[in-house]
Design a protein around this nucleic acid. Structure first.
Lengths: 225, 225
DNA sequence: ACAATAGTGTCTCTTAGACAATATCGA
DNA sequence: TCGATATTGTCTAAGAGACACTATTGT
């Protein structure tokens, strides 16, 4: 009665060498078996409560990661995108610290810089591009990038993360003012980053209340006009 | 093989009496036959190129409207939202001038203020709420509201539209500066709004290049902090 | 002339960015 | 002490909002 292929795909992103990377997996089934593609698969009505749950399951099964942040990106559909026929994929995106991927220890996961993705099966290159655009845009007015950091981090580190995503330097004073205003991080009392040959930096952590929700601002981080 | 119900739903909105309204239709099939709900229905793989085309078809068939602006909102899914079983609905939203709905002449279309929607079948109330939030948010930094105006309009009229959507007054000077900066409207040479007992206002129209694309700004229209 | 709203000039206040001064570590 | 980077203070410039003034219509 219903001849539509229903899938979810997840764009798992992280920061490595100060550049945004996307996680790809070699496909083990046709079509496009053997080619790297986004982790994804069929929605299983029997076991998935909704598409969000399906995406979380896919991420867990294929990469071993349980991401705190997993947001719906958009739905991609059409007759041409899958050689098997009319298909529909609900795409999600997740941001995690690099260590989390290492620790999950799924060696078949490969990380590719988002600007080096090139051709991918289906319309996955298109989905990745949409995800990157969403992350860039959302990072400019929210706390989204903290999900790329570990449990604790210094403000200069966090600023470097923002700069890596946005692709341009941010004024230090403005950045600190903005973080203050967003009120999303708090200093870890007494914890400093030591070992460097210079003044130690205060360690911060994400406030509990924002562990799965973003902190938003109506004024972008850097407005060049 | 695939037991997922695939549908699209459209949140068609307009401005009436300076308030945002949503178009609802009485359902003529079960489930919830007879109740007002969003225009929507099954995706037809045979005739719809993708979900966007399906949404446009739905809007055309059920309301007689061909909206210049039709954007994907999000996908709503789950086991519980439809009594028939696990379902997935790709939701779209459209903004049109009130006259366009009148002129289409589908009398079964009823307009309800978005804050008076109350209970609706499926999770349609939820979808409407998401659409309203999206429109409010997007209106604060883009030319989205011009789709609610007719072919030509005065700047005070347009400002009133923005104020109706955002729910708060906007500074007149700032608004005009912003419209200038967005560069999305152009004066219609020599055309003025006459007949009122005061100085006539210049008529404007949307620039050709923005007829189906938004003009964006990185600084919100009104920032209260 | 008067009421009413359109359109513009300008002042002030807020906020972003530049710059620089101070602080604190390891070597 | 020196080199390096963290953190903070302050000045300047750009943009937003307040206010008021001028313009143009119908009555």
């Amino acid at each position: 009665m219903n001849d539509i292929i229903c899938t979810v795909d997840v764009v798992l992103m992280t920061l490595k060498d100060s550049r945004l990377h996307v996680a790809l997996l070699k496909r083990d089934h046709a079509p496009f078996a053997g080619l790297p593609a986004l982790p994804g698969g069929y929605i299983r009505a029997a076991e998935d409560g909704d598409t969000q749950a399906a995406a979380a399951r896919m991420l867990r099964e294929k990469t071993g990661i349980d991401s705190p942040y997993l947001e719906q990106l958009a739905t991609f559909s059409g007759r041409e995108r899958d050689p098997r026929g009319w298909s529909l994929s609900v795409a999600y995106y997740a941001l995690v610290p690099h260590e989390l991927i290492e620790r999950a220890g799924h060696p078949e996961v490969t990380l590719l810089p988002v600007d080096k993705v090139g051709e991918l099966p289906f319309d996955h290159a298109h989905i990745v591009a949409a995800a990157v655009q969403r992350v860039r845009n959302k990072s400019s007015y929210s706390s989204l990038p903290v999900y790329l950091c570990g449990d604790s981090f210094t403000l200069p580190q966090l600023q470097a993360v923002y700069e890596a995503i946005l692709g341009e330097p941010i004024n230090k004073v403005s950045f600190r003012r903005k973080m203050e205003e967003l009120d999303m991080v708090e200093p870890v009392a007494g914890a400093m980053e030591t070992g460097k040959a210079h003044r130690p930096a205060q360690l911060y952590r994400l406030r509990e209340c924002y562990s799965r929700n973003l902190s938003l601002t109506d004024r972008a981080l850097n407005a060049k006009g």
